[in-house]
Write a protein that binds this DNA or RNA. Sequence first.
DNA 1: GGCAAAATATGATAAAAATCATATAGCCAC
DNA 2: GTGGCTATATGATTTTTATCATATTTTGCC
Lengths: 236, 236
Amino acid sequence: MLQMHDHTNCQSCNQRFNSVFCKAREEYVNLINEQKVCNVYRKGQTLFNEGSNPFGVFCINEGKVKLSHLGDDGKEQIIRLLKQGDVLGYRALLSGERYSASAVALEDTQICFIPKELFISVLKQDAGLAFEMMKLLSDELHKAELKITHLAQKPIRERLAETLLFIKETYGYEDDGITLNVRLSREEIANLVGTATESAIRLLSEFKKDGIVELDGKKIKILKQKELIRTANLQD
Amino acid sequence: MLQMHDHTNCQSCNQRFNSVFCKAREEYVNLINEQKVCNVYRKGQTLFNEGSNPFGVFCINEGKVKLSHLGDDGKEQIIRLLKQGDVLGYRALLSGERYSASAVALEDTQICFIPKELFISVLKQDAGLAFEMMKLLSDELHKAELKITHLAQKPIRERLAETLLFIKETYGYEDDGITLNVRLSREEIANLVGTATESAIRLLSEFKKDGIVELDGKKIKILKQKELIRTANLQD
DNA sequence: GGCAAAATATGATAAAAATCATATAGCCAC
DNA sequence: GTGGCTATATGATTTTTATCATATTTTGCC
């Protein structure tokens, strides 16, 4: 049986990280705490599927999740990486559409589920939370628009460097201070960068040859972060 | 002197199109109507610049606007095309950041300006409007994520076809029922597709040779819409 | 532990797209 | 209208990237 420390309580969540829900008024936090349903998803398990009807929002308590589209030819495009405290499933709910992306656990993950009706009603009553939600959406939109520009204008080498830095921003390093704190397949890295798997592998090998990274299976160590930033050619 | 029909009145706007602001409660529509400032921007004039501080939101009364990022190497990436009834400038305001994009009039355009404080305060009081705003943001986010997938996975030929269809969706046809109702330079089309100007020109020529479009300067006529849809290879 | 399947790696080749070059057409100012 | 500038067009070439092919390594599993 999977053992995970029990944090399935919105009050304790608030102390651990800054979820949008923490910004709700106390009475609503309590309401959410009562009605939520918590579950553990094993690595590779699906939270929801592209094309199905949204039934609520998810809040990650512990673990990591990827959110991805399936392209017209069936190729996966990873559009977001999520960690503890992050909320997902709200996009489709707010638009009143079916899920446009699938969510899959990248490792064993503990997640709370908040039913659609509750989420909507709290959002309608709590202007502060609504504002935080708008801010969250705006931030995501900003990131998406930056990604559009980079996909359109930057070569794959720069995008891979940027992606590695993005993974580092999202999940940080392990205790050694250099190993990226997530295990992604080369294919997943490619689907994040927006390139062919072979190209991602090839460029990672080049980065290794240049001493920028060290590769040990799915473990990626960033040896020269500055060089990586230079390679990513970031202005912003 | 530029002559434009005077629609600078939120009540009459409501009858003409469905702006988010039309969804506000009547008292707030009236408040906005009183405090807004209307102006005409000539073709090519800038509403706001990437990097500057947001001072409010704009609502297009009549005309067309492009919203674009500057890539790290100075190349423009057009991220949105806007028409009458559309609102812009809210992204940065809600995120509490500087503008991440510039807005430029594509033709002579009449625009109302709503000051930041008013926008925020109405948004905080009117839950219905806040909800519409979240819906708007969610829809934009969805579009952006689709675009990311297409940029990452589709060849330029398909993306150009898709872009032409997108322009048609946004601005429609002129009275003849086939001419796209906007004038964009080849460079702007390329910056919408995310490709080099020469590639956009070349592929447009191919579309013309295939009888899919007819080119007459900046006028683009869609002769075979079905063929264009097939070329875009859209699933969704 | 050892086998099969999957993931990673790397080379060769093909395809796609950008860049460079140059010609022509359209447009604005005078 | 004319000159000069800019936008469009098109060909040639190079660069980038994807695809195909084939090892090699890793991983899950009995």
